[in-house]
Simulated assay, not measured.
Amino acid sequence: MTTLYGHRAPNTTARAPHWSDAALCRRTDPEAFFPAGIGAAVQQQIDDAKTFCTGCPVRLACATSAITNGWDKGVWGALDEGQRRRIVQRRPENLRQAIRDEWAKRKANPYFDAYASRTEQEDDGHVRWLIKSTSVTVLGRNYTPAQLGLILARGREPHGTTKATCGRPGCVAPEHLADDIVRWDRSRDAA
């Protein structure tokens, strides 16, 4: 037996517009905004994503949504994970202004620039220092290639001797470097 009212009418109401409809990244590979790991290549991917976001018409809405919804991974609205975490920790009264202030701080990383312009990524994950000089001056201080790589990997000044742990002579891949603190942490964890 069939009924006259046994079917439903199609839903013809349109979805309300959302800020993400106008996001430039909708037409790109989402992996570009979610770099994983540490090192110069990852930092370059983060910087590239932020640069891409800079031209997006909805970057303020994107950054605001990421902070208010607790999206802790990736680059959202030209802000990386650390930048969003700093904003959340400050608990600003005006979130939009805090985001704009964080954007204004964006400067080139002099450590990354010094490292990237003098190194070359090899196919097997190692990084080679390209110039003969074994030190470079950044912000008025001299660093070895390994020390520069460690700063990129750990986000802090090196302590004691900094050298590669991969066994490859001359490798300065940030993820392959350890100073006294890293070696001490590893020996403590192993014990």
Rank of each mutant, 00 (worst) to 15 (best):
L60E: 09
D80I: 03
G170T: 08
G160M: 11
W184K: 15
N11L: 10
K50V: 11
R168I: 12
G77N: 02
E157R: 14
N94H: 14
G160I: 06
C171R: 06
L95W: 05
F34R: 12
A173M: 08
A63P: 06
V88W: 01
P35C: 12
V42T: 15
E31C: 04
T54I: 01
K50S: 02
L152E: 07
R90S: 14
K50E: 09
H176E: 06
T134Q: 15
T51I: 08
A178H: 13
D124Q: 01
A36W: 05
G74H: 04
A22S: 09
Q147C: 03
S117E: 14
I46F: 07
A153H: 15
I38N: 08
D113N: 07
D179I: 09
H126S: 15
A153L: 10
A108R: 15
R106F: 01
I87L: 01
H18P: 00
W129T: 11
R96G: 12
P92K: 03
N109Q: 06
T134H: 08
G82A: 10
Q43A: 04
R188Q: 11
I99W: 01
T161F: 03
G125Q: 01
T134S: 12
T28L: 13
A116Q: 13
T2I: 10
D123P: 03
G155Y: 10
S135K: 11
H159E: 15
G6L: 03
L95F: 08
A146L: 12
Q44E: 15
I181N: 04
A114D: 05
V42D: 04
G160S: 13
P158W: 00
D179N: 04
E102Y: 00
V138D: 02
E175V: 12
Y143D: 06
V136F: 06
I131Y: 05
R118G: 01
A108D: 13
T144N: 02
F112W: 14
T51E: 06
P169Q: 07
A23F: 03
Q45W: 02
I181T: 14
Q45G: 05
A114C: 07
D101A: 14
A191G: 15
P57L: 02
R188V: 15
P110Y: 00
D189H: 04
W129L: 13
G70T: 01
L148Y: 05
I38V: 15
K50F: 01
G160R: 08
R96M: 03
R154C: 07
P30D: 09
E93V: 08
A164V: 09
P10C: 02
M1P: 14
W76D: 03
H18Y: 02
Q83D: 15
C25G: 03
L150P: 10
A32Y: 00
L130M: 14
I87D: 04
A191K: 09
Y111P: 00
G82F: 05
R128L: 07
T13Q: 13
D185K: 14
D123S: 12
Y5M: 09
R15M: 03
F112T: 00
S117I: 02
T13E: 12
V58A: 08
I38A: 09
E102I: 07
G74M: 06
G55A: 11
S117R: 12
R96T: 11
G39A: 11
A49T: 04
T12E: 07
R100G: 02
E93W: 06
